[in-house]
Design a protein around this nucleic acid. Structure first.
Lengths: 232, 232
DNA sequence: GCGCTAGCGTGATGAACATCACAGACCGCG
DNA sequence: CGCGGTCTGTGATGTTCATCACGCTAGCGC
């Protein structure tokens, strides 16, 4: 079980779990049950009524997506080791609004909602931590809405790429290898335009290609594009 | 102080305050200080670093807006009596990301963050209530993002109107009387197109005009448009 | 009354982007 | 090796919407 201690050591920075006191976190994680997923396997399906658990990624990566009214797939996020997924339905016990599938072979922990709530309410520090973290999420989403409204294609794709770079990799490798269609569904634009933009950026040395894989060369450029749009 | 009891009686349904136990709520509200605002007066400014209080609307209405990277105004929400505003920065003690001004002459209560947190952490029921309410907010925002991405003008304007109708009014009056420019900033489209759409809808009997004021005649139509888009 | 301003209606133009169509390129698998 | 699938590049076309440009109206102060 030393993967568990590993996990606690490098929990993702922006996750709800970080808000819990360390001792409670450890108890919580030891109570959870482990599960392995094949690539493409679904663990949460949009529309499920019984959303009484959340999922912690141990290894691999999950894709969170939903199908829009028009029938198009929208990818909301990719989650890697140390991140918590499905906590919204767990907290408000509503139906699942998105589907979660394994992007690559993965192993996860299943956290029943009661277990999580017990840990979260155990001390005032944990309570305030969880509330703070939830508030941060709301803040983040507000920014996304604002940028979605006003940004054009390029900044949106830039934001998608920035969210996908592997922070541990020096040469700007991505954490996953999405197809251009996936990138489009993630950034909210058509597959053809992903292709056109990437070619352009490759010519300018902003991204590079190594076989299938995409490398982000000029992270700073993409970052400012993602943050301020192309009018800045 | 009977306005206070009034307020407690008809708190807005989707507000964080609802999550608190009634006795704590009353204590909390009695500790808050009251303030009156003239129309157009600003109570919270985007960029303020000391976001250590939230605001409860007693009478009137507040407009929550921000300025986008391109310099355009974006109206995020209108809040009426019984609603809580500014709770995000209060909870995560980050900077203010939006500006709050009085849309009409209003009176509000100022809730210091410490006061709110004490009430929220007082009992496990309150804690779970607040978490549930925050989670609901996140869920709501995810839906907004999804629809913003895929919806065209008409559904977006429909959603704006649905959010503005006065639930207490039988004839579909709005809670405020926004100009077409404001409606555009709220729904994310150009003023001219607001004009065109409203004319079209008026011809179809979906909305009506009484002087300046707008009346929503076919609420159900707008509702389904807002929810499923124009492909349904 | 007269001007003055904020808000409205509506056509013409253009930019941004989705969609369509098709031609390679790559890759596993028999 | 060849063959079918999925992924990719790139032009042509069309839609959707913002933008520009203007004239109109309705208050409102004087």
């Amino acid at each position: 079980m030393d993967t568990l201690d590993d996990l606690i050591g490098r929990l993702a920075p922006d996750t709800l779990l970080r808000a819990l006191a360390p001792d409670q976190l450890e108890i919580l994680l030891r109570k959870a049950t482990r599960r392995d997923l094949r690539a493409g396997e679904t663990i949460i399906a949009q529309g499920d009524e019984t959303g009484d658990f959340a999922v912690v990624v141990l290894t691999g990566g999950l894709k969170i997506s939903m199908v829009s009214a028009g029938g198009r797939e929208i990818i909301l996020n990719y989650c890697g080791p140390g991140e918590l997924v499905g906590e919204i339905a767990m907290l408000d016990s509503g139906p699942r609004t998105a589907t979660v599938t394994a992007a690559v072979p993965s192993s996860v922990l299943i956290l029943p909602s009661r277990t999580f709530l017990d840990a979260a309410t155990a001390s005032p520090a944990s309570v305030e931590g969880v509330m703070r973290e939830l508030a941060r999420r709301v803040r983040q989403l507000n920014l996304v809405i604002e940028s979605d409204r006003t940004f054009s294609m390029a900044p949106r794709l830039a934001r998608a790429l920035v969210r996908l770079v592997d922070p541990d990799s020096a040469d700007g490798r991505l954490r996953y290898h999405p197809s251009q269609s996936d990138l489009g569904a993630f950034a909210g634009l058509a597959r053809e335009n992903v292709s056109r933009l990437l070619s352009e950026w490759e010519a300018q040395g902003i991204v590079a290609r190594k076989g299938r894989a995409l490398l982000v060369r000029d992270h700073a450029y993409l970052q400012t594009l993602a943050e301020f749009g192309d009018e800045a």
